[in-house]
């Protein structure tokens, strides 16, 4: 299996593209194997990998579904960069062999397929959407637009893969990762939601672990401004509630003015304070 099938001798250089694909079922023993696939105009890396699978290596494991960048199944690392196989054009990668590897942050199943089950496990702990009122909602276009950005997420987990907290430091028990933050932001900023996820963010979800390097935003195939529009506003919300006496004082004053009738209400939300203060490093 580790020998590369040779391209037909008469093939012209530009008519065949070279692939270097990681094969094997354990990270330590994965090997790079070279393959060649015929070039066609506009082809994406997934086309090349699938050609190898269909014609030479039927047991080459690769995860894909829609081939249209809608489903987010085919996240891998192409020439070292986390990308979707279906959205990466071969002609933008130049003439050098294209290296395809599984997402590094997660455990390996086989070849290009990673075990991404952790991502599904953590979101189970996030309090779901909780409607304040019965539908139909009265919601204006501008209310919708803000959170619709987060709803564009295709759950490819490339942001999780690139996040150094998870990738380099393997802190899976301490930080839920950028995808989870996008999900939480979409819920927290929904004008009709009355759930409260700030205790989780300040506790087990480990928002403080993120030091806003913006790597997740850079790899997002949907162009979601993860750091700027999801993570930073969430950090501000957590800081406002738990860590910033001045801001808290100001917001309490505002609240006080608005609800002049009931002074005792102010600040009671602090009762559900986070359970692990050591994580909060604001």
């Amino acid at each position: 299996m580790n020998t590369a099938p040779e391209a037909p001798r008469e093939a012209h250089h530009q008519e065949w593209i070279s692939l270097r694909i990681m094969r094997g079922t354990t990270k330590e023993r994965q090997k790079v194997v070279s393959y060649q696939a015929p070039y066609s105009p506009g082809m994406v890396v997934l086309d090349a990998v699938r050609w190898v699978q269909e014609h030479q290596q039927p047991d080459l494991a690769v995860r894909w579904n829609c081939k249209a960048a809608h489903c987010g199944s085919c996240g891998t690392e192409i020439n070292g960069r986390p990308r979707l196989l279906c959205k990466t054009r071969v002609d933008e990668l130049g003439q050098a062999p294209i290296t395809v590897a599984p997402m590094k942050a997660f455990p390996l199943i086989k070849d290009l397929v990673s075990d991404v089950s952790w991502n599904y496990a953590v979101v189970k702990t996030i309090p779901p959407f909780k409607a304040k009122v019965k539908a139909p909602f009265t919601m204006y276009p501008e209310d919708a637009e803000r959170i619709q950005e987060f709803h564009k997420c295709i759950e490819c987990f490339l942001c999780q893969d690139t996040c150094h907290v998870l990738r380099e430091h393997q802190q899976f028990g301490k930080y839920y990762g950028p995808r989870s933050m996008v999900l939480i932001a979409s819920l927290e900023m929904h004008p009709m939601d009355e759930g409260d996820r700030l205790p989780l963010l300040d506790g087990n979800a480990g928002l403080a672990m993120c030091n806003v390097t913006g790597c997740c935003t850079n790899v997002c195939p949907q162009g979601i401004r993860i750091t700027e529009n999801a993570i930073i506003p969430l950090k501000e919300r957590v800081a406002d509630r738990y860590y910033d006496p001045l801001k808290k004082w100001i917001s309490n004053r505002r609240e006080k003015r608005r609800q002049d009738q009931d002074h005792r209400n102010v600040g009671t939300r602090d009762n559900n304070h986070h359970d692990d203060p050591s994580i909060g490093a604001y």
């Binding site: 779901p128 959407f129 409607a131 019965k134 539908a135 139909p136 909602f137 009265t138 919601m139 204006y140 276009p141 209310d143 919708a144 959170i147 619709q148 709803h151 819920l187 929904h190 939601d193």
Partner: peptide, 19 residues
């Protein structure tokens, strides 16, 4: 469809705030 809205789906809106 309204049920979905109540479960968190965010549809595009009319200027007067409907689906």
């Amino acid at each position: 469809v309204l049920e979905l809205e109540e479960w968190g789906a965010v549809f595009d809106r009319t200027p007067d705030g409907k689906i």
